[in-house]
Amino acid sequence: MANPAVYFNGLFSGRLNNSRWLKGIINTTARQPGPLGIMVRKEIADHIRSWRFIVLLVLLLLTFIATMYVSLTNLQAAVANENDPDRLFLYLKLLTTSDGSLPTFHIFVSFLGALLGISLGFDAINAEQNNGTLTRLMAQPVYRDHLLLSKFLGALAIVSALFLSLSLLMIGAGLLITGVKLEPEEFFRIMGFVLLTVLYVGFWLALSILFSVKFRQATTSALMAIGVWLFFTIFYRIVISMVVKGFFPDPVYLSEADVLWYNNLLLDLLRLAPSQLYTDATTTLLMPSVRSLGPLTVEQMAGAIPKPLPFRESLLIVWPQVCGLVAAIAVCFALTYYWFMRRELRS
């Protein structure tokens, strides 16, 4: 080690403070980001440099290109379909058309988005703890919740940038290929779709951060998050159908109103799954002619003209879904907060 006297010249003395004070007066415009800003920046840099993110990015890009290819090849037929009230929304058609060989992009995202959220968050806190960086970080003058927030916001910033650029790419490519003008309504709907997707990924992110606080091992928390995801995508429907078979009366002996009531109950049960909320909401936003997410009676449909709804009406239909997603994120985040804030930090 070198002689410290050389380097510590004036470092700990009052002279330094004076010079800093002077600089502060001269250079008042340069604003320094707060601790949260610095932490979020570091998180984003970490994600971008990690292999995990590159793999996910490639996966998502491949999905995007494949679905775009399928929808572009079938676009002509879809737009020419006289029976479809949505046929004139070209850019929405780009996102929702498929010939059945591949699911559409928003269905894909309901699977992949979960995976994206989980993989960005499952080792957020426990990796720091196992590496011994957590105590070091917490010994700095920063609040504990800044760490949680930086993990969440950092990953969310990446996800938003990703989906926003993907959808803008799609719009740009659509403009180049078809030459059709983009209607403001379509633009808002696509932006709504992006926002919903970010919220949806945010839910899985919040859930996986929750597990990363709860479980010390990164593998355990990843497994738990994937377990929850698998449960909701595969087993939840099976469980619901078992419940229906076991407890619901035979519809043959029921009045129409009762059938409707049971149907709504069934839908509400299904909507406990976040992926259901997401698909409901995106379907409504991307297909303007969708009027209701539940069954409609003949009386309700009487006199209705098969015409696309305005953007505001579609938004009103999906509002409960959006609220549900936000609430789910808030619950996960609150639990994470509760467990992390007063916990003993030891490596």
Binding site: G132, A139, P141
Partner: peptide, 18 residues
């Protein structure tokens, strides 16, 4: 926070971002 501003702490198995 006020204490941490004045105190430097090195934990026993100090870790860094690898």
């Amino acid at each position: 926070i006020a204490v941490k501003r004045k105190v430097g702490y090195m934990p026993d198995n100090v870790g860094f971002y690898d």
